[in-house]
Amino acid sequence: MSVGFSNYTQIFTDPDIRGPFMQIFVWTFVFAALTVVFTLAVGFVLASLLQWDQLKGKAVYRTLLILPYAVPAIISILFFKGMFNQHFGEVNMILDTLFGVRPEWFTDPWLARSMLLIVNTWLGYPYMLLLCMGLIQAIPQDLYEASAVDGGGPLTNLFKITLPLIIKPLTPLLIAAFAFNFNNFVLIALLTGGNPDILGASTPAGTTDLLVSYTYRIAFQDAGQNFGLAAAIATLIFLLVAGMSLLNLRLSKVKV
């Protein structure tokens, strides 16, 4: 059976599918971008700190800091779901004793989004830490010695020597990390399931849904399985991510 482009035209003409598309697209973009920024910031600062030869016990810190990466994400996400539970979760218990508040992590859209970012930063910074630790090793020590002779402080070293030297090999990997989080289906599916729902949308669409999980819900959970439509949207998402990545590669002037 030949369907031609009907799956593609359906995406653009069916109001049920097109409806919340823009809102979800913006959130997907913000989520992926902020994740990369947060994980990189944490990972890079820690990697530079662990590089400091004056610091004792580096091996212990290094091992402890890598631990969030040791447990498969799929398992830790489920534990986080329990921890952020409004009534029984440990997070709210601590917040309650300290500040007397019990935020509704799963029913308020903004809190749910912040929770996703917190959990994803916890899950993702060890990757950046490992990458930065590896790439920093190629920086010659004499640059830091020269900086010390000229009176450069730790901040100068961090932003004028370390960052510029590792950002070049790091850029393509950051773009890849962006693309990975753009499609971070597992996190959304296990932690919030896309909830809370967008009010007034006719398709199952949530305020924390990413484009992939939105597609997944349309294709596999709504009234029967629609592989053709899912494949069409997947292709569109791919074109979108690929386009943004290519633009990014061009703008950041990655030389090959």
């Binding site: 890849a176 753009f182 499609n183 289906f185 997944y216 899912a230 494949a231 997947a234 991510v241 590669l249």
Partner: peptide, 17 residues
């Protein structure tokens, strides 16, 4: 090089089939 980077960005969950 660029192709390798770009092509693995296809959403994995949706290519499982």
């Amino acid at each position: 090089l660029k192709g390798m980077l770009i092509f693995q960005m296809f959403p994995a969950v949706l290519s499982l089939v």
